[in-house]
Design a protein around this nucleic acid. Structure first.
Lengths: 84, 84
DNA sequence: ATAATATTTAGATATTTGTCTAAATACCTA
DNA sequence: TAGGTATTTAGACAAATATCTAAATATTAT
């Protein structure tokens, strides 16, 4: 739960998730959407990956990232329980 | 949204919310539940308050804190939209 | 094999964060 | 009003975080 909230606690990372919601994208395509260096984006992607919010797949020389929404269920449940 | 995720991104603060879910408590009662100094808890409460996740009310020499779950709806919506 | 492109790793740095102790403020009671 | 209790504010400090540039790695194309 800690890794999840940590990963969500950054505007850039939340925007990355919103990008990946539309469609899968390569690391470079994601980086192009921000005014942030590629290494920094790579680091954000790593944090999202550790939280299991995204997965990655090597596609030739590219690395394609996909969102994994199922883990968000955990956050939803935590919040819903708190509301009850 | 930023303040909200920031406030939720700390185990102590999440535990405080869980305590307040049961019932309203004074700052001192909350502090007693943790091995953390009162000033630190006061700081956490301030962060929760700025995020509108709790409200406080002076009760004589005590300050009683209550959870505000309605703001959690925003987080829920953000997550649900991401899942769609 | 070489060069070009895509991505990650390493190392540095400034900022933010969580924590502490000491001091200030607010309220209550004798 | 003086003294005690509850809470917050101020200031310091270590650890975590987001960012950068430079270098390393992996893949593709000539």
């Amino acid at each position: 739960m800690n890794l999840l909230f940590k990963a969500l606690n950054d505007d850039t990372r939340r925007q990355i998730l919103e990008l990946l919601k539309e469609k899968d994208r390569t690391a470079g395509e994601i980086a192009d959407a921000f005014n942030i260096s590629k290494p920094s984006i790579s680091h954000h992607l790593d944090i999202l990956k550790r939280a299991d919010l995204v997965s990655s797949k090597k596609k030739g020389q590219f690395v394609e990232y996909s969102i994994n929404t199922s883990i968000l269920e955990d956050v939803l449940q935590w919040i819903i329980t708190l509301k009850k």
